[in-house]
Each structure stands twice: as C-alpha cells, then as structure tokens.
Computed example of a mutant assay.
Amino acid sequence: MTAPASPATQTCTDHRIIVTGCDSTYFVLVAELVASIRAYRPTPIGVIDCGMTPDQRATLHAQGIRVLPPFIPDYAPRRALRRRPSLGINISKLWLDRMLPEFDLILWLDADTWVQDGMAVERLFAAARSGTLAIVPEIGAKRADLLGVRWICPGWMQIRSFLYKNAARARLPFSIRRRIGAKPLLNAGVFCLHRQAPIWPVLRRWQALILPRRNMAFTQDQLCMALAVYIDGLPVTFLDNSHNYLGPWLLDEATGQLANLFFPHAPVGIVHMASQKAMRAALDNTMPVPTVQGGQVALNLRYGAMRLCRTAAVG
C-alpha cells in the first residue's frame, strides 16, 4: 500500500484531535471513553475501525466522530493481521500524522482508557506542542521492582525487561538491547504528538525493520517509541503516572474518584485498564480496592461504573 501523501505546509492553528481504535468487542469501551472525554470538553474524536459492525459505525457517525480505516504498510505481516485484524490499530498509531493531516496535535488513547480528570488531557496536549513526544514511562507505583530480572547465581542475573525481551525477539543487535534493556517502558496506550514532530519518520523506520519479524505486531509500537527515544535521542517529555494510570488502585470515598497511590492521593487523570480483562468484559465484574479512608470496596474500574460511584459520593 502506498503511504499517505505528506501534507502540504499549512498554517498551524493548534487544531487538536483525540484518537482511539477498536473492533466490535471493544466498542462498548470506546463508547465509555467518548463519554468521558465529552464530559469535560467537546474535542474532536477519531476511531480507527478494525472490525466494528455497521450499526456501531453508524452510532459513532451520529455523534460526529470520525471513523478511520487503519493504515497497513506493505511490510506488515498479512497472516497475523488475518488472524487478528485489531493489530491494525497498533500498526496505525505510527501513521497518525499522515492519516490526520488537518490536525496539529494528536492525542492517542487506547480503547481501555477513560478520562477522569480533563486537565490530564490538557497537559498532554501542552507537553506535545513543541514537537516532543509526550508520554508516561512505566516507573513508580505500578510495580515494586523497576525491571524484571532472573538471578542465575550470586552476582549474576539476566535482565527480563519488556524492552530487552522484545528487542531480542526482533533480533536487534546486542549493542541496542544493552542500551535499552534497563530503561523504563514508554507505555504507548497514551501519548501525544504534534503532526510536525521529528519523531514520526524515525518511528516508521524502526517499524519497517521490526514489523515483518515474527510475533512483533502487537508490541512493535512501544518498542519503536523506546528505540526512537533511547537510541536515536528524539525529544521526549515524561509525564507522571496519573496521565496513564495502570494501578495500584485506590478509591477516595469522599469524592468517588480513583486516587493516585502516592500521597497526597490526588485524583487520577487517565485510567488505563490494561490487564483487567474481566472488568473490561462486564460492569458486574469487580475487584477489591482499598480506600484513602482505610476501608475496602468492591469496584469495577470502567467509566460507567465509576460514574455511578462518584454520583453516590457527591449526591
């Protein structure tokens, strides 16, 4: 497939868009994500369609939401995409500047995220305005260990980090694996970039190298971003974990909002339900969540459930 044409130079008007993607199964999550965005600001929204039904596409069109076909470059693994069409979403992330040439700032939010505090969105847009990659590194409260290791014997260990394992699977040279292996993962579930940011072609250069290699379609977006930042030195602005919060989970019973584990337990900005398959599937599925006040509640982390929780707390 021919790459989308590079847009002609335009006057920068700071037009913004929030983009996500889904198939028919994740449509309900995208509907909740859209509701959470529009609860604070009428920002334009685009959804990459990798398997929605005609009725689902019509529902989005009726809300003024752009439905976008995925962009699949010629070097993409066709067999993997036939088995799992939703992989086209991850591949398309690195082509958004070409897919949306009329927008200056593009914020990506995975389908299993939702916005609890609109200021987090504003800060992501502000961080990306100068052409830097605005993204959250996976460090801090999510995990006790900064990176995984396997101890072989006293004084000897093997690094088991996401970046090291995926760089090895992509058959990248050891010199590259060594440089990125101990670096924090840059979580591609939430990121923001200016259309003219210098990182776009670098991301696609790495994608063209990595994507044809076996089993790399699902993780290539995060690996490409890490390589562009840690190996090529492209500019990046790190935001704290409240802008892409993956847990540990904490509820403030006084406000009915999810709170950051770190004191003073400020409200989480963007909730990311990665690895929460049961809760993503049904609002009835819950997990025990401690509270700021010292208690514990059974909670579903989805926007639909948390909206009811907040209404009960403030009502």
Rank of each mutant, 00 (worst) to 15 (best):
A182V: 00
H194Q: 12
I176M: 01
F174D: 14
W206N: 11
V202I: 02
K183H: 10
G189K: 06
P173Q: 07
W200N: 01
R178I: 00
L193Q: 07
P184M: 10
Q207G: 03
I199V: 09
C192I: 03
I199L: 14
L193E: 01
I199N: 04
Q207C: 10
V190P: 12
K183I: 02
F174P: 09
K183V: 02
Q196A: 14
C192V: 02
R204A: 09
W206H: 14
R204L: 01
F191Q: 02
N187L: 11
A197K: 12
I199W: 08
F174T: 11
G189A: 03
A182G: 10
C192D: 10
A182E: 14
L185I: 14
I180S: 07
W200I: 12
R195L: 08
Q196G: 13
R177Y: 05
F191I: 07
W206Q: 01
R178D: 15
V190G: 12
N187T: 11
H194C: 12
H194M: 11
A188C: 05
C192P: 12
R195Q: 14
R195C: 06
V202W: 04
L185H: 13
P173F: 00
F191Y: 15
S175Q: 08
R195W: 06
A188R: 05
N187D: 10
R178F: 13
F174N: 12
F191R: 00
I199C: 00
R205Y: 06
L203A: 10
V202R: 02
L186E: 07
W206M: 04
C192A: 15
